[in-house]
């Protein structure tokens, strides 16, 4: 056989939708977006699947997690995959996800990014490293109108008894079909519990065109790991300082801001921080110097007796 394998397995009508969210607190919202769109596609006789990323760590609060939908006019060839490698649409249920996550990775030319934020698209764009293939960005404050729904119902491949599209997921699904007509808006409306919220997303999303022309799309084929790429027997040196392989700063939606004036150096924050973010050198030099591991849990602000620590939205900071 001498076939062009890339051409042979092409799926030209396949649309890939990827939603990024925060573990536990927004898993359900991410699932709602992809299930609402897939269910709408199903109503139109399209071939669909929707699922949660299996490799992410969904039971850690704040960890970036993903949910996916695939919608096609043709039967799905590549059904058993872990990820959407080349999304047409990326949705963020939380604005801070633009930091520390390559959310546009692999995006197809002319792709769409929808962000749940009250900020302007132009401000969000500042945080995106490579927007070469991004066609449109849309911002909508979904939390304002619908709120996050926290439930384990529907997690781990089980049935969602709480209903699809109750919270921000409905808003964001509406915004998606406004930006890109993947499925008919009326079918999305009839696939969510909260129609009003969905309609709001469709009507109110602020869309901005980013690029209209794109360089040739040539994604590099994935190279499998070889036996020499992993340590002998999978054993690894134990971490006794910092774990560079598990940076957790991108779990953070709010940043602790420390006021030197109010601080009495009681070090309760140093004692309570679960991630050793508060670095204690001398009593005069306790500082929040290691934010790359700060998950934004807020325990430090909670335990501080003098309110020297306040939690500030992460996207207020441009660094």
């Amino acid at each position: 056989m001498n076939l062009d394998v890339k051409k042979l397995f092409e799926e030209p009508s396949l649309i890939q939708i990827t939603t990024w969210a925060r573990g536990v607190i927004e898993n359900k919202d991410a699932r709602d977006v992809v299930f609402a769109l897939a269910n709408a596609g199903s109503k139109e006789g399209k071939y669909v699947q929707a699922w949660e990323n299996y490799v992410d760590l969904p039971d850690r609060v704040g960890v970036p997690v993903r949910a996916y939908a695939r919608i096609s006019d043709e039967p799905l060839l590549s059904k058993y995959v872990y990820e959407n490698e080349h999304p047409d649409v990326v949705v963020l249920t939380n604005e801070a996800l633009v930091k520390g996550n390559d959310v546009l990775q692999g995006m197809k030319p002319g792709g769409v990014l929808i962000v749940n934020t009250k900020r302007d698209p132009e401000y969000i764009l500042k945080f995106l490293k490579d927007t070469t293939y991004l066609g449109t960005i849309g911002c909508i404050d979904a939390t304002e109108v619908a709120g996050h729904v926290q439930t384990l119902s529907g997690a781990e491949g089980a049935t969602d008894a709480s209903g699809i599209g109750v919270g921000v997921g409905a808003v964001l699904a509406g915004a998606v079909v406004k930006a890109k007509s993947i499925v008919k808006p009326e079918n999305v409306l009839s696939s969510v519990q909260n129609e009003e919220a969905c309609r709001y997303g469709y009507d109110e999303v602020r869309l901005v065109t980013v690029n209209t022309t794109f360089p040739e799309f040539k994604p590099a084929p994935k190279k499998p790991l070889g036996p020499e790429d992993l340590p002998f027997a999978g054993t690894v040196p134990s971490v006794d300082k910092e774990n560079e392989k598990r940076i957790t700063g991108n779990w953070r939606s709010e940043r602790p801001v420390w006021s030197k004036e109010r601080c009495t150096n009681c070090l309760l924050c140093w004692v309570n921080c679960p991630d050793s973010v508060v670095v204690y050198k001398t009593p005069e030099a306790a500082d929040f110097t290691n934010l790359k591991y700060c998950k934004g849990c807020g325990i430090c602000a909670e335990v501080c007796p003098t309110k020297a620590i306040t939690m500030v939205p992460e996207l207020d900071f441009e660094d």
Partner: peptide, 13 residues
């Protein structure tokens, strides 16, 4: 020289 045995890995490993 501590070492971890049986760490969680991802399917590609």
């Amino acid at each position: 020289d501590p070492m971890i045995i049986g760490a969680q890995i991802e399917p590609e490993m």
